[in-house]
Design a protein around this nucleic acid. Structure first.
Length: 415
DNA sequence: CGTCCACGTCTAC
DNA sequence: TAGACCTGGACGG
């Protein structure tokens, strides 16, 4: 879930699903999580959420009652508490019944309902984190989506910062200036403007206005617009996109994802196809990809630009699958695209660009030998898990999803 | 089975 | 500027 739009969608999800829900008791943490315990307990409290860039803040608000003194005495919270979350690569929130806790539910808030429900912070890879009594992380810039003017000002007034010595695609991941932009957004944004990703950032930015020249057109807003959208579609890349500059697209492109109304980037979910169809560049068949200086895959089309890594390594063009898992709240199915499929063309390109494909940082360790670490893993959730898939793993690729499942994607040049 | 890859930070040499 | 931190899906043998 984790770029600006997904974080914001997560906050909307919490506000929507937890509206009117009364939570009760202590906040509970999984055994495996290394994040701090959250010292909050209360007979009755509510949960609301806000987002800023790549962070979400939950506010736990105790309900009023006459006996606040007694409560305070009993160690119960009286004051609200804020908890600030970062999602890492895999974090999200989910409200479920207590007997259906998701795997990797590392922080949990229990309702006082009859069949109890639980709001969980779920994070398979555990790169996410939280901080109680937290504030927005110092050093992160204004939100690209909801603090647009100050975001823009913050960039334009700091162009002398050495941070802008780097290629534009790498600077776009600098959260001090682009709080909310992540790997798919940088690709989509640069693609819209046809900007070679490895142009020097300062050169790309220095001629932009400090104030948005498109000011009149106002932010994209959460307009669940009516019917005019259809026509706007047809003449896409009309005025708007052509006059919009890079900084403005850092604002509008993420808001497009919010307005898609799904979950954003989340291949596991049923409504991923809407997001997938929205992507024009990232992971799209026919586009080029190389690794930037930090080992992150940059997707683009055409010229890479002068600051491209010399020995440039292009990652293997892998395919991606969406699995049909349907336990979703909104089941709006769509025909799944088959856009990232054939790799034939890319292979040729790879041959040219690839020297020694460096391994993903992510995985390098395992392979370089270091044997298995000690940690005999405790169950992720301290709730007993029905350990259905023990070591007798069956390849499950054939059941459930054959109908419209992954097979589709592999359609090669059948055109 | 093993390898590669993934929406992101962090901190240590 | 490398690693470290993690799990799991897709794919290849």
């Amino acid at each position: 879930m984790p770029e600006g739009p997904e974080l914001h969608l997560a906050s909307l999800y919490v506000n929507k699903t937890c509206e009117g829900v009364v939570f009760s008791g202590p906040v509970r943490k999984s055994e495996v999580s290394k994040c701090s315990d959250v010292p909050f307990t209360c007979e009755a409290y509510r949960i609301t959420a806000t987002s800023r860039g790549k962070e979400v803040k939950l506010t736990l608000t105790p309900l009023k009652s006459d006996e606040s003194k007694q409560r305070a005495k009993a160690g119960q919270a009286v004051q609200p508490m804020d908890i600030v979350f970062r999602f890492g690569m895999s974090g999200f929130f989910r409200l479920t019944r207590e007997d259906e806790l998701p795997k990797h539910a590392h922080l949990r808030f229990y309702s006082n309902e009859k069949p109890c429900r639980v709001l969980s912070f779920v994070d398979a890879r555990r790169f996410g984190s939280w901080q109680h009594n937290g504030t927005w992380q110092a050093g992160r810039g204004p939100c690209i989506m909801f603090e647009y003017e100050s975001f823009r000002e913050n960039v334009m007034s700091h162009l002398s910062d050495r941070a802008f010595d780097r290629p534009i695609c790498e600077v776009l991941l600098n959260q001090k200036y682009f709080n909310g932009i992540g790997n798919y957004l940088r690709a989509e944004i640069l693609f819209r403007l046809n900007i070679p990703p490895f142009l020097p950032a300062r050169a790309v930015l220095e001629n932009l206005e400090s104030e948005d020249s498109c000011e009149n057109q106002k932010p994209v807003k959460n307009e669940i617009s009516d019917t005019k959208k259809a026509s706007a579609r047809t003449k896409k890349s009309g005025v708007k996109e052509e006059t919009a500059d890079l900084l403005r697209l850092c604002h509008t492109v993420p808001l497009e994802v919010v307005n898609l109304g799904g979950k954003g980037y989340d291949p596991e979910k049923a409504d991923y196809s809407g997001f997938e169809a929205w992507l024009r560049c990232y992971y799209v068949d026919g586009m080029t990809s190389i690794r930037d200086h930090n080992g992150r895959t940059m997707w683009f089309k055409g010229d890479a630009g002068p600051m491209a890594p010399k020995d440039s390594k292009s990652p293997k063009a892998k395919k991606r699958a969406k699995k049909e898992d349907d336990h979703d709240y909104t089941d709006k199915k769509k025909a799944s695209r088959s856009r990232r499929e054939s790799t034939t063309k890319k292979k040729v390109k790879q041959e040219r660009m690839t020297k020694t494909p460096k391994k993903a940082k992510d995985t390098r360790l395992k392979e370089t030998g270091s044997k298995r670490k000690k940690t005999e893993k405790a169950s992720d959730v301290n709730t007993p898990q029905p350990e259905t898939r023990s070591n007798t793993r069956t390849r499950k690729s054939s059941a459930a999803e054959t109908i419209a499942g992954p097979k589709r994607r592999n359609v090669r040049g059948t055109r």
